[in-house]
Every structure is written in structure tokens, then in C-alpha cells.
């Protein structure tokens, strides 16, 4: 097994776990985390795409893409968390 295959399969597996969670989980926070897993899996795949048989240098483009992806996902997570908090406080008001 070459490293790219291992990482690649891991990426796909992580994505699949995340996907299952995003579709099946009930809890709001869990679903956010599941989506995070998905993004990790996709990131793995891109990193694999950058890998070259040493001594060749890895391809820099996918690295740039992964970093962009991470930034995008951080923003998305922040928005989702803010929404969840707001919703929870609204619901808490109702309960009182």
C-alpha cells in the first residue's frame, strides 16, 4: 500500500462517516461536527492529490486549495454555531 492510497482511502472513509452523521444525527451540534468531518475527508483527498513519489516535490496547488477549504469551513462552522446559540436562547425564552 502506497501512502497516497492509505490517505486517500482514509479521506473517503472520514467523508463517509461525516456524511452518515450529517444525514442521521438529530442533535444540531452533532450535525455541525459531522459536516466538519466531511470537510476533513475532502481535505485529505486534496492532500493526496498533492503527493508525489519522493524525491519529487509535492504539488503546491492542492495545498493552497486545502487551506482555502479550511478557511471556508471555519466561517461556515462559526455561522452555524452562532445560529444554534441564537435558536437555543430563543427556545429557552419560550420555556420560561
Amino acid at each position: 500500500m502506497t501512502p497516497d492510497l492509505i490517505y486517500g482511502l482514509t479521506g473517503i472513509a472520514v467523508f463517509a462517516i461525516g456524511l452518515t452523521g450529517a444525514l442521521c444525527a438529530q442533535d444540531r451540534l452533532r450535525r455541525v461536527l459531522a459536516l466538519k468531518l466531511c470537510s476533513l475527508g475532502a481535505g485529505f483527498l486534496l492532500v493526496v492529490a498533492a503527493w508525489r513519489e519522493p524525491p519529487a516535490a509535492p504539488d503546491p496547488v492542492p495545498h493552497a486549495l486545502v487551506i482555502t477549504g479550511i478557511v471556508v469551513m471555519i466561517s461556515a462552522t462559526a455561522v452555524a454555531l452562532a445560529l444554534i446559540r441564537r435558536l437555543q436562547s430563543l427556545e429557552a425564552e419560550d420555556d420560561d
Partner: peptide, 21 residues
Amino acid sequence: YMYASILGALLFLMGVGFVYL
């Protein structure tokens, strides 16, 4: 909407990864 939209985008990203690979 957020969940659906992010999931859709991530599926797209996964596809992008495969294409680059």
C-alpha cells in the same frame, strides 16, 4: 438550509478532489 447547503458544497468539494486526483 445551512446543513443542506454546506453538505451540498462539501459533496461538490469531494468531487473536486477526485477530479484533481
